[in-house]
Computed example of a mutant assay.
Amino acid sequence: MGGRRQTQRRRMEPDARRAEILGVARRLFGANGYATVSTSDIAAEAGVARALINHYFGSKRRLYLEVVRQMMVVPASVSRNLPPTGPEERLSICVDRWLDVVERNREMWLSAIGLEALGNDPEVDRIMLEADEIATDRILEAALMADVTEGRTQLRAMIRAHSAMLKAASREWLVRGTLSRSDLHVILTRTVLHLLNTVYPAIRAADGGSAPPTP
């Protein structure tokens, strides 16, 4: 990707500069792939010296892994400032916000979930495991079930399992075009509610326990 015209450099606070570099890297890696993009390309596009990328991230791979982590970990903003209503509305808002993130970063999202399918990379695997746990936290927070203790292990396992369907369904939307965004919104919201309201109580009953009342 040589010959890229360097963006004019601007003064920025360190956190803002780091975020800008990540944004540029996310866009370039998503559009062109890891092997094609160099740190020089990213530096030129971001309007920084290449040494600054090394300062913040250490290496191209570390930068790439941070981009993957940024893509896969559901941001806190997805479940922030939700209305004090019921789980259905709160989960619907979360799903809509998450779809916004994926839609803005289509290529990098698809690249990141493709890495998970390949496997055999312990660092990527750790990122994916962390992402699943954080996504589970966000969903339970939105569903007003963050404090559930009875059957908590099974509950969290169900939500983690749901994330695999979420990724597959996003390919149907973004790659195959067999689902629209609104279709995906309905699928993701309704399946989570079904897990929480129907499957989770059934599992608790089968285990001889009782689930807490639906919020």
Rank of each mutant, 00 (worst) to 15 (best):
A202K: 11
S182A: 14
R11G: 00
I159A: 04
A16N: 03
V101R: 13
L166P: 00
D100G: 00
L22E: 04
T85R: 13
A31K: 07
R69E: 04
E20V: 12
P212D: 06
A25R: 02
G114L: 07
L91R: 08
I42A: 05
V67S: 01
D137Q: 10
R181P: 04
D207V: 02
A146R: 15
S163H: 13
S77A: 14
N197L: 08
A205V: 06
V68A: 05
E89N: 05
A169V: 08
S79M: 11
A117G: 00
V102L: 12
A164I: 13
V192C: 06
A143F: 06
R50W: 02
E103D: 15
D137P: 00
S79N: 13
V102S: 05
R90D: 00
R171G: 01
A76D: 15
R4S: 06
Y200C: 08
Y34C: 03
W173R: 06
A161D: 07
R5V: 15
I159W: 07
R160Y: 14
A168H: 12
R204K: 13
R9A: 14
P14Y: 08
N197F: 02
R104M: 09
Y200V: 07
E172C: 10
L184F: 03
A35C: 09
N81T: 12
I21M: 07
M108I: 14
A35K: 15
A44W: 06
A112K: 05
F57W: 02
A164E: 09
V78D: 04
T214P: 00
Q154G: 08
A206Q: 07
T7R: 15
R90S: 01
V73M: 09
I159P: 00
G114H: 05
L174D: 04
K60G: 02
L184Y: 01
R69L: 04
N197K: 14
P87F: 01
E89C: 01
V73N: 05
G209A: 07
L188I: 13
L184S: 01
R26E: 12
R4W: 04
A211H: 05
S92R: 15
H55K: 09
E13D: 14
F57D: 03
T7N: 14
R10K: 15
S79K: 11
V67L: 04
V101A: 00
T7W: 09
R5C: 08
V186S: 10
H185K: 14
K60N: 05
G58E: 08
P75K: 14
D147V: 05
A46F: 07
V24L: 01
V175Y: 04
A131T: 06
L196T: 08
M12V: 10
M108K: 03
N120T: 10
M128L: 14
A16L: 09
V74K: 13
D132V: 05
V78N: 06
R176Y: 15
Q70W: 04
V199N: 10
Y200P: 03
R97M: 01
P75E: 06
A16E: 09
R138A: 15
P201V: 02
H162E: 08
T136C: 14
K167Y: 14
E20I: 10
S79C: 12
A112P: 00
R152S: 08
E141Q: 14
M165C: 09
R152W: 03
L99M: 07
P215A: 04
